[in-house]
Deep mutational scan, measured.
Amino acid sequence: MQGVVKVNSALNMRSGPGSNYGVIGTLRNNDKVEIIKEVDGWYEIRFNGKVGSASKSYITIVN
């Protein structure tokens, strides 16, 4: 499943599904990500070869 980031500035990509996990990357508006699965309001995603988590509130699913 594919998604597109929708933010005003930037979205942190984290090492796990929650804001208490470390930041491993930064996503910008309109970045395209691969959604692997949903976990507690977060998506596990793949972006630029990295796997991490980002809040699903800022990612829109595209077909």
Rank of each mutant, 00 (worst) to 15 (best):
D31C: 08
L11A: 11
A54K: 01
K6Y: 08
V23K: 06
K6C: 14
W42V: 01
G49I: 05
L11N: 03
I35H: 01
I45E: 00
P17D: 03
E44V: 15
G18T: 01
N63K: 11
D40F: 09
S53P: 02
D31P: 02
I24R: 00
V4A: 04
G52W: 03
T60C: 13
S19C: 15
K37F: 09
I61Y: 05
G49A: 05
D40E: 10
S15P: 05
N12E: 15
G3D: 03
S55F: 13
T26L: 13
E34V: 10
V51C: 09
V51N: 07
Y21R: 03
N20K: 12
S15V: 07
R28C: 14
L11G: 06
S53I: 10
G49M: 05
Y43R: 00
D40H: 10
V4W: 06
V23D: 02
P17K: 03
I59S: 00
K56P: 04
G18V: 00
P17V: 03
R14F: 15
N30A: 08
Y43T: 00
I35K: 00
D40L: 08
S9D: 13
Q2H: 13
K56Y: 04
E38Y: 06
N8R: 13
S55L: 15
G49N: 09
E44L: 14
Q2K: 11
V33R: 00
E38R: 03
G3T: 02
G49R: 04
N8F: 12
Y21Q: 03
T60F: 14
W42C: 04
L27Q: 01
S55T: 08
N48S: 07
T26I: 14
I45C: 03
T26C: 13
N20A: 11
S55I: 14
L27P: 01
G3K: 02
R46E: 08
N20E: 14
Q2N: 10
V33P: 01
D40G: 12
M13K: 01
K56V: 10
I45G: 00
S53T: 09
G41A: 06
D31G: 02
N48H: 10
K32E: 10
K37D: 11
P17L: 03
K37H: 09
S55W: 14
Y43S: 00
N30C: 12
T26A: 07
G49T: 04
R46I: 14
W42S: 01
K6E: 07
V51W: 07
N63C: 13
M13L: 14
G52E: 02
V7G: 10
G41E: 09
G18F: 02
V39E: 09
G52R: 00
G16Q: 02
S15C: 12
K37T: 10
K50A: 10
P17S: 05
M1Q: 11
V33G: 02
W42Q: 01
I45D: 00
Q2E: 11
N48F: 07
I36H: 03
D31W: 05
F47R: 02
V5M: 03
T26W: 09
V33I: 07
V23P: 05
I36Q: 04
G22A: 15
N30Y: 08
K37V: 06
S15H: 05
G16A: 02
V62S: 09
V5D: 02
Y43G: 00
I45K: 00
V33S: 01
T60D: 11
V23T: 07
N8E: 14
M1L: 13
K32T: 12
V7L: 05
V4Y: 08
V33D: 00
I59M: 02
F47D: 01
N63D: 13
E34R: 05
I35D: 00
I59L: 03
Y58K: 08
N29L: 08
L11R: 05
S57R: 14
A10M: 13
R28T: 08
G22Q: 14
I59N: 00
G41H: 06
A10C: 15
A10Q: 13
V5R: 00
K56D: 03
I36Y: 06
T60H: 14
R14M: 14
M1C: 15
R28S: 10
G16P: 04
R14V: 08
K56I: 09
S55Y: 14
I61H: 04
R14H: 15
T26R: 10
G3R: 00
L27F: 02
K6W: 06
E44R: 05
N30M: 09
I59D: 01
K37M: 09
S53M: 15
N29P: 10
K6F: 08
G18L: 02
V33N: 00
G49D: 09
M1P: 07
G16K: 02
Q2P: 09
W42H: 02
T26G: 02
M1I: 13
Y58E: 09
E38P: 01
G3P: 02
K6G: 05
I24H: 01
A54H: 03
V33M: 04
T26Q: 12
S15L: 08
M1H: 10
I61F: 06
N20M: 11
D40K: 09
G22W: 08
L11Q: 09
S53K: 03
K56C: 08
V4M: 09
I35L: 03
S15D: 12
I36N: 02
K56R: 07
Y21T: 04
S9V: 13
F47H: 10
N29C: 10
W42I: 00
K37C: 14
A10S: 13
S57D: 14
N63F: 11
S19A: 13
Y21H: 08
F47S: 04
S57E: 15
F47E: 01
N29R: 08
R14E: 05
G41C: 08
K6L: 09
F47I: 08
V62D: 09
S55G: 09
G41N: 08
G22T: 13
D40Y: 08
S9W: 12
G52A: 06
K32C: 13
N20G: 11
G18D: 05
Q2S: 10
S57K: 15
G22L: 12
W42R: 01
M1V: 12
G22K: 14
M1Y: 10
I45H: 00
Y21L: 04
V39P: 02
R28Y: 13
W42D: 01
N63H: 13
I36G: 02
S55K: 15
K6H: 12
I61G: 03
T60L: 12
V39A: 07
N29S: 07
V7C: 15
G3V: 04
M13R: 01
G25N: 05
I35F: 02
L11V: 15
I24D: 01
G18R: 00
N8V: 12
E34L: 11
S53D: 03
N20S: 12
N12L: 15
M13G: 02
S55V: 13
G41M: 07
D31H: 04
N29G: 06
K37Y: 08
V4S: 04
F47A: 07
N48G: 11
K50D: 06
G52S: 02
S15A: 13
